[in-house]
Design a protein around this nucleic acid. Structure first.
Lengths: 192, 192, 192, 192
DNA sequence: GATGAATGAGATTTCATTCAT
DNA sequence: GATGAATGAAATCTCATTCAT
């Protein structure tokens, strides 16, 4: 493991557990087994670690959902796969996701931040893909007549919120993925 | 306006805008027009402001949804009212809610915090009310056969997530409330 | 002695001795007998101490030379008094002057600095007074035909340079003041 | 251009512009197009660059004024040539001179520094040459009865101060050299 | 000779909190 | 109750320097 990886690993663990603000760079360095200065050698600032993390995970997520869109045979199926992917992703990378969920919004909003652009770009890409799924479903008749814009917003809201509740809280809910899929399917499917 | 109220008002504005961590007590004092010491006279710590805010808003929210439960004629109607109330509440108290959404989870998890108990108690009360709605719907036949536990979890997830997206992001979606209601109704209603 | 004064006194001593950059705020605090934070309570930044010092000494100097201009009976006499005042001032406030001479130019040039304006304003005031002396001497016939602009520049250069050499170096020269006056008088006086 | 020269060139530019303390070795390395380690290969420390610079420029200056002394036909002429040389030198090597003026005194005084000796040795050599000019003028009757010690001190002060004002400030004064010469000639020449 | 990743000491600054008035 | 000067612990970040390659 390179030093950079060690720093990232340590940061993810600590940020997920205690939060970004409550974690000091000296703690990260200690856990990573490197000198504190090394952190700043690789990531210019403490926020830089968060940024790197965010970009990395967002790119990975975006790539995943873009693949789904390519493979899916219908709009509704795409939505289902999207949800399935979302929860699978959340399980595989729960730590990183926790960090992003915990500490992200703060920076999202800060206007001066050099993040802002990158972040909003990624987020809107995610929203776009969801919208495209809906639009396809409208065309192929698998989804009922709904505004793609608004519906994709709600779908994203559902995924974020449910994941949040799951990641942050102590409650364990089995089959979350399939239950959300069922609910969404009934909500979106064309009435017969 | 009493000094305490002035402090709260200032804190809400600043915490909502910049976040809890990025706001200093001196800024709060300045905006409130009181001495810094006064803050600590009313709220023992800086976190104490957040705690007070949280309790106040949570109690208000809990009271609201408990009333709904009393008035509703069916489980499904209760759920609908719940959603309606949620978004109305979010609009009326958007600032406070933003604060809670922005900065809450961090403290939620901190184990040592004296908050933890109070917070979890309130949150589980909210979850319980949602569950009771579902349970009533199961009994009165307005809601299809679903696990109350899991479904209430998802409903809460939806509300939190969609509100979050709405409060934090720049997108404006009209009729969010009724669209979410529609989706949930189709998702929960008994098939005929 | 108030805390602020104690900080200033300590800072002057240390900056004069070791230079601004080589002195840490912790050293200043220690010598002043205050907590390090107290420094930042009174002067927002470390540079702020230098700024305060500079303004204070420049105002004092400017006031001094403006008085001379009022009292002097001829231009040449004004110049003489100016030089006399300059060296007297340098002796009375040698420490502060040393600080200014040692560490000032760096900031003078920095463009972004909030200092710049204040500094240049003061410096040009000093230059202006010198120029007025020359101009008066031209009118009253006590000074030979010389460009006021250029001559005042040279006079200021002389004063700065000679003081610098005196303050910084180990050499002790007696009667510096009167020797400089003699040299300048011969250099400026109208040939008879 | 060798690596060493590239480093020196970069250092001169940056030190002159931003000052020694505000320039990091990494910036110097970047501008010079070498690795940071290379700097320390050629100059043992960061201060070493300044030292090298200083020695080089001082030797060049000293050599120049020593030649003048040899060629001059009278003491007064030597002084005049000295001044002429000083300003010519200042124009040819303004950047280096700026560095020396900006950042030198700080180190001059530091007692522990290995510089100190070299520096004071060079400075006193310059002072000595000036004194010799005066002494010669006293003998050959071109300079009026003045203390060589004190007068050379003043002459040096004038040169340093006027150059400083010229190099550091924004003011442009034409014919500075000849004006200073005129003033000094009148100040030093034997009354007829 | 040349590199540049890694270091770690140290610097400035922030800020919640206290407490004498 | 109200103040705000004073604190000091802790945090982020810089940077000259080293050293294995």
């Amino acid at each position: 493991m390179t030093r950079k990886e060690a720093i990232l690993k340590a940061a993810i663990q600590l940020f997920a557990q205690r939060g970004f603000h409550a974690t000091s760079t000296s703690e990260v360095a200690k856990r990573a087994g490197v000198a504190e200065g090394t952190i700043f050698h690789y990531f210019k600032t403490k926020e830089g670690i968060l940024m790197y993390l965010f970009e990395e995970i967002m790119d990975s997520y975006t790539e995943g959902i873009e693949n789904i869109l390519k493979k899916a045979t219908s709009g509704m199926e795409a939505i289902e796969e999207l949800i399935r992917f979302h929860f699978r992703f959340g399980e595989q990378r729960s730590q990183e996701l926790k960090v992003v969920m915990r500490d992200f919004p703060s920076n999202l909003i800060e206007f001066g931040s050099p993040f802002r652009e990158k972040v909003t770009e990624r987020l809107s890409r995610i929203m776009d893909v969801t919208k495209e799924c809906i639009e396809r479903g409208l065309k192929d008749g698998s989804i009922r007549d709904l505004s793609p814009e608004e519906t994709s917003f709600i779908i994203q809201g559902i995924l974020i919120g449910v994941s949040r509740l799951k990641l942050m809280g102590p409650l364990r809910v089995p089959n979350l993925s399939s239950q959300v899929i069922d609910l969404c399917r009934r909500g979106l499917a064309k009435p017969n």
